[in-house]
Amino acid sequence: MAGFKEYTGKTVGMDRTNVDTDQIIPKQFLKRIEKTGFGEFLFYDWRYKSNGELNPEFELNLPENQGATILVTNENFGCGSSREHAPWALLDFGFQVIIAPSFADIFYQNCLKNGILPIVLSEQKVQSLLERSKNQPYTLTVSLERQTVSDEEGLNESFEIHPYWKKLLINGWDEIEITLKLDEQIKLHEELQLNK
């Protein structure tokens, strides 16, 4: 996983609440055994009409939102199923950053493990980003090091992230490698359990 420091990209607003992972990637696409290639099925039932044609009204299909890599959305994004295929699909489609007032717990973790930065901003701030990105191309710059989201017109918001996840993301570290260094402690725990 490559390190995440600063990122500038076009945003797309998706003013929907409680977007569940069944919508992000429907179940019929969970049968593959690889992590790649899920992007074409992202938001499948919303992106395509039942005859397979693109749904021109869906946010991601609007002309001004083409090439967007930062998703701005509403509360409780990623709720429901634990499927990591959801962040795999978002990443494969091109998303690097997701901004929302809140995320479901498992989805938030799944994003971090794949180098997608989930950013929590207040509902009011997210609303303002949604307004700014409406009907026009809108670019944001995200600095994970400074923990800020900014635009060219002077907007500058800060966000919180656990220092440990921040460090992992910035360095692109393999978490298993870190844990394996604690093998002695894990063994000790196992021995204590056995002797209880």
């Binding site: 499927r83 990591e84 493990k113 978490e175 298993i176 844990t179 394996l180 196992e190």
Partner: peptide
């Protein structure tokens, strides 16, 4: 509790998880 596939891999390899 439910976990994602990266965490499944972490548990398979280490029998542990980093959790707040």
């Amino acid at each position: 509790f439910g976990i994602g596939t990266s965490e499944v891999e972490h548990v398979l390899a280490t029998q542990t998880l980093w959790q707040t």
